[in-house]
């Protein structure tokens, strides 16, 4: 084939134009649909994020089954505590009305660690009007119990003063002032 003086240039330009057009069409086709509705992003992503599954479902769904704990919890000082913080998220327990897993119940030493997360006075910065704190093991000594006692031997975990008040009543101990 005889080529004219500028045939290569023409072919290059043609090639570049085809490349640009194909590229542009490809870009239009493969850009996501809802892109740019509100801004430079995929608008559907908002709804997708809103539809994410909740794993924590507040205390409400716990109470109908666990009525005993519910009764204690809602009247006790620990009523602001979330069930799911100590026991784990609802989603690991019930899915679509079916029990799918056991949630852990803390025992023994775990209880002490759990309680002291909040109630340890050795960690300063725990304002008295927010939370009641104790120093361990001084608190056990003060109360004249064994130093091996775990917190829940005196304080019900769901209602910390429940037993103490009951005991005082039962034994007719008058509150000092």
């Amino acid at each position: 084939m005889k080529s004219s003086y500028n045939s290569h240039v023409k072919r290059i330009i043609l090639g570049l134009v085809i490349f640009a057009v194909v590229g542009f069409i490809g870009k239009e086709i493969s850009s996501p649909k809802s892109f740019g509705v509100y801004g430079h992003y995929r608008a559907d992503a908002i709804q997708e994020e809103a539809d994410r599954d909740m794993r924590h479902k507040t205390n409400t769904p716990c109470l109908p089954c666990h009525t005993h704990e519910a009764g204690l919890h809602k009247n006790g000082l620990h009523k602001t505590i979330s069930c799911e913080f100590c026991h784990g998220p609802m989603a690991d327990h019930i899915t679509s009305g079916i029990k799918t897993g056991e949630l852990p119940v803390k025992k023994g030493e775990e209880i002490r660690v759990l309680c002291l997360r909040c109630h340890n006075r050795a960690i300063h910065a725990r304002p008295g009007d927010v939370i009641k704190t104790v120093v361990m093991p001084d608190h056990l000594r003060d109360k004249k119990v064994k130093e091996t006692h775990t917190c829940n031997q005196c304080h019900h975990v769901h209602a910390p003063y429940n037993y103490i008040d009951q005991a005082k009543q039962a034994l007719s101990i008058k509150e000092a002032s």
């Binding site: 003086y5 500028n6 045939s7 072919r11």
Partner: peptide, 13 residues
């Protein structure tokens, strides 16, 4: 690009 044209005109371009 399948061009063999090396004329002075082409080289000038």
């Amino acid at each position: 690009f399948d061009s063999t044209n090396l004329s002075p005109e082409s080289l000038e371009l």
